[in-house]
Design a protein around this nucleic acid. Structure first.
Length: 299
DNA sequence: TGCCCCCTGCAG
DNA sequence: CTGCAGGGGGCA
């Protein structure tokens, strides 16, 4: 799924479009993607769009929040109006920024919403719509009351937000040491250690830190914890800067792809030369996940 | 801590 | 056809 930078990219693009709008109707094309009673969101106004780790949150009136987890293949796409085919050229011609340059951001996206992987549709009071697409059906939308939010097991298990005030290398070290024997990269994926890091940014953070992803956390020096700390922050910030990573599915709320993978040092670059030293990037498996690294730059 | 699973589709 | 994919929960 989208990791922290991708969810943050969606948050920022969605926020611009939906604040103040009222949800008029929710359509469940795949009922198992939705948890809670959709009727409770009806007639509620959208107050705020937030992000917690990799979870997107749409805060509504009367203390309701829509939580959205995109898992591996989720998308949240805003469309000003659904429009018939004949209306499309008119719309994109009139308002710039509305046109989807290059047609469809990903191969599997049909031109129009809803498409084959649309699971939930929110219709807003101005006729616009939010589409929750999820090819693999791992993701979910959950309508939850703020009371229950405090009791939510998943939210409560999340570790510190890496880009927020208060996250330090000492905290990173302490949390990583919860599982001393596992490889550092596997631990970075543990959401109770730091929240929001996924497979792409875990690989990138290890590269930026010059740390071999296979090293057991117990064997890391303080200097390495510090470098990992900076590497995490730098890779996530770069991810946001370039609008996220679009390997296959990811697009922002406007349907635009992210460019981060063009700037990645290791992720997805196996057998290609390291951008720093020219050595061919290796791909191995750690904790069941593909792991990319440079055996010269990372020790 | 390390599998296996959820599900769909694409590349090799 | 097999294996793999931005995640994470449940099982031994």
């Amino acid at each position: 799924m989208p990791e922290l930078p991708e969810v943050e990219t969606i948050r920022r693009s969605l926020e611009k479009r939906v604040i103040g709008r009222v949800i008029e109707e929710i359509y469940l094309l795949n009922p198992t993607s939705f948890h809670g009673d959709p009727l409770h969101a009806r007639s509620q106004k959208i107050l705020k769009v937030i992000r917690k780790a990799k979870v997107l949150g749409i805060e509504l009136t009367q203390d309701f929040t829509l939580l959205i987890h995109l898992k591996m293949s989720g998308q949240v796409i805003f469309k000003k109006q659904v429009g018939k085919v004949s209306d499309v050229s008119k719309v994109s011609g009139v308002s710039k920024g509305e046109s989807f340059i290059g047609g469809h951001p990903t191969k599997d996206m049909a031109g129009e919403m809803p498409n084959k992987s649309t699971r939930v549709i929110f219709r807003l009071d101005d006729g616009s719509q939010i589409f929750f697409n999820d090819q693999r059906k791992f993701g979910w939308v959950k309508l939850i009351h703020s009371e229950d939010m405090k009791l939510n097991k998943f939210l409560n298990s999340l570790g510190p937000e890496p880009l927020e005030e208060g996250f330090t290398w000492e905290i990173l070290k302490k949390n990583l040491l919860k599982h001393k024997k596992s490889p550092v990269k596997v631990n970075l994926l543990d959401q109770s250690v730091v929240s929001g890091i996924g497979n792409i940014y875990a690989c990138e953070a290890c590269f930026l830190a010059g740390v071999d992803p296979r090293i057991k956390v117990a064997d890391l020096t303080d200097a390495q914890f510090k470098k990992l700390y900076s590497g995490i922050i730098e890779s996530l910030k770069n991810g946001i800067k370039y609008g996220g990573s679009s390997k296959t599915h990811f697009v922002d709320a406007e349907g635009k792809k992210g460019l981060f993978l063009d700037y990645a040092f290791v992720y997805g670059r196996d057998k290609k030369p390291c951008k720093k030293c020219g050595t061919l990037i290796e791909k191995i498996k750690l904790g069941g996940r593909g792991t990319f690294f440079c055996q010269v730059c990372q020790r």
